[in-house]
Design a binder for these strands. Structure first.
Length: 367
DNA sequence: TATACGTGGAG
DNA sequence: TCTCCAAGTAT
C-alpha cells in the first residue's frame, strides 16, 4: 500500500551539515563586502524593520527608507503611536503598503501584550501581523540567536543548486522541506543569524539567479552537486505565474491655481488608502472629458493632453491617458464615485500626501 | 493551492 | 520592449 500524500523529500540532504562551516567562514571573511545600515546596530526593532522592508525588495532600494524611518520612528513605542498619514509617507514609493500598516498593528500588539519588547520566540513572532515564517526566523536568529533557518529566495536557490534538486521553488511545500532539512544543522547564538545572512549574501553576490552564478568564487563549490554536474545555471526551477490583466484609465491633473485635486483610494485592495489623481476607467475622448467636467459644474480654462503612461504592477498593467485641466474657480467638487476631491498645495503634495509611483509620471511632468 | 499585493533594476 | 525577479505575507 502506498501513502497518498508523501511528504516532499529533498535529495542528497546528507550534504547539508557540511555546508555550515564553509558558509560561516566565508561570511566572516566577507565582513567589509556588504556594509548595510541594519548590520551596524543590531536590535530586535532594527532587525524587524529591515526584514519587513527587505521583503521582495532589493537592499539598495531599502537603505534610504530604512535610515529615514528610524530617524522619525526610532523605537517600537513611537511606531505604535505614530500618525497613519506620516507612516504611509515614510513608505511612499517602497511598495507593498500593507507592510507598513501591519508594522504599526504589530507594534501596538507588542506594546499591549509584551510590554513593548519584541518577543524572543518563534511562535509569538509568527503571530504578529506581517510576520511570516521567513521573517519570524530572520528576527529570531539575527536578534535573538535562535537556531531557525530563514528560508527566502536566496536560501532556496543555494539549496536547490547544492542538492541539484529540480523541485518547483514556487511551491510552499518545497520551502517547508528546505526548512525541515536545514533546521537540525542550525547553530544557536551569534552563528544562527550569521548563517542566515551568509546564505543571503552568497545568494546576492555569488550564487546569482538568471543563470549567472559565480561558481569559481563559491565557498560551496567543492560540495555543490549542480556545479559538479554543470547544471547550476538551470536551477532552481520556478514555474511561471499567469499573465497580468490590462486596465485602461484616464487620469486627470486638475488644477485650480496652485492647488491640485487628489482622491483617497479605498481602504482595501491595490494601493489601499493611498492618495491618487482623479481617474476614470477607459480612455475618454476630449468630448467625453468635457461633458464629464460639465456634468460636475467644472469650467475648464484649458485642457491639455499629456503623454501616455504605462505602469506595470506584478499582476495588473495600467494603460493611462492623462489630461491636464486648468479650472476657473474653486468649487466643492464630487468625483464620479462620490469620493470628495481634496485640493493640495505643492507643499502638501510633497510633505503630507502619500502618492504611489504609478501617478508620479503625471506629477513630475512640466506643463 | 492560487492569487493579490509595488517597485525598480538587470539582462 | 519584455521577462524575470529581490531578505514574503495574507487570504
Amino acid at each position: 500500500m502506498r501513502k497518498q500524500y508523501t511528504p516532499l523529500q529533498l535529495p542528497h540532504t546528507d550534504i547539508l551539515p557540511e555546508i555550515v562551516e564553509p558558509l560561516l567562514t566565508w561570511y566572516r571573511g566577507q565582513s567589509t563586502l556588504r556594509c548595510l545600515p541594519w548590520r551596524e546596530e543590531v536590535t530586535p526593532y532594527h532587525t524587524w524593520i529591515s526584514e519587513i522592508m527587505l521583503q521582495q525588495t532589493r537592499a539598495s532600494a531599502v537603505i534610504p527608507y530604512y535610515t529615514r524611518f528610524l530617524e522619525v520612528l526610532p523605537d517600537i513605542a513611537s511606531l505604535a503611536r505614530c500618525d497613519d498619514e506620516l507612516l504611509m509617507k515614510l513608505w511612499q514609493g517602497l511598495g507593498y503598503y500593507s507592510r507598513a500598516r501591519n508594522l504599526k498593528k504589530a507594534a501596538c500588539q507588542i506594546v499591549e501584550d509584551f510590554g513593548g519588547q519584541m518577543p524572543a520566540d518563534f511562535a509569538a513572532l509568527l503571530a504578529l501581523p506581517g510576520i511570516g515564517r521567513y521573517t519570524a526566523s530572520a528576527i529570531g536568529s539575527i536578534a535573538f540567536g535562535l537556531p531557525l533557518p530563514a528560508v527566502d529566495g536566496n536560501i532556496l536557490r543555494v539549496t536547490m543548486r547544492v542538492l541539484q534538486c529540480g523541485e518547483d521553488i514556487a511551491q510552499l511545500s518545497v520551502r517547508r522541506a528546505v526548512e525541515d532539512a536545514l533546521a537540525p544543522h542550525y547553530p544557536s547564538g551569534e552563528d544562527a543569524g550569521a548563517l542566515n545572512q551568509a546564505f543571503m549574501d552568497l545568494g546576492a553576490t555569488v550564487c546569482l539567479p538568471h543563470g549567472a552564478p559565480h561558481c569559481a568564487l563559491c565557498p560551496l563549490g567543492r560540495l555543490c552537486l549542480a556545479y559538479a554536474a554543470g547544471s547550476a545555471e538551470q536551477l532552481p526551477i520556478k514555474v511561471k505565474k499567469s499573465k497580468r490583466r490590462i486596465e485602461q484609465k484616464t487620469v486627470l491633473v486638475l488644477r485650480q491655481g496652485r492647488a491640485l485635486a487628489l482622491m483617497k483610494r479605498p481602504e482595501k485592495g491595490l494601493l489601499a488608502g493611498l492618495w491618487e489623481l482623479p481617474n476614470l476607467p477607459g480612455h475618454l475622448t476630449e468630448e467625453e472629458l468635457r461633458s464629464w467636467l460639465a456634468a460636475r459644474g467644472l469650467h475648464a480654462l484649458t485642457i491639455t493632453r499629456l503623454p501616455d503612461v504605462r505602469h506595470i504592477f506584478s499582476h495588473v498593467e495600467w494603460q493611462m491617458q492623462g489630461w491636464e485641466v486648468e479650472l476657473s474657480a474653486p468649487e466643492a467638487v464630487v468625483a464620479e464615485d462620490d469620493s470628495p476631491l481634496v485640493w493640495a498645495s505643492p507643499e502638501e503634495l510633497a510633505d503630507t500626501y502619500s502618492i504611489p509611483s504609478a501617478f508620479q509620471y503625471f506629477l513630475h511632468q512640466k506643463s
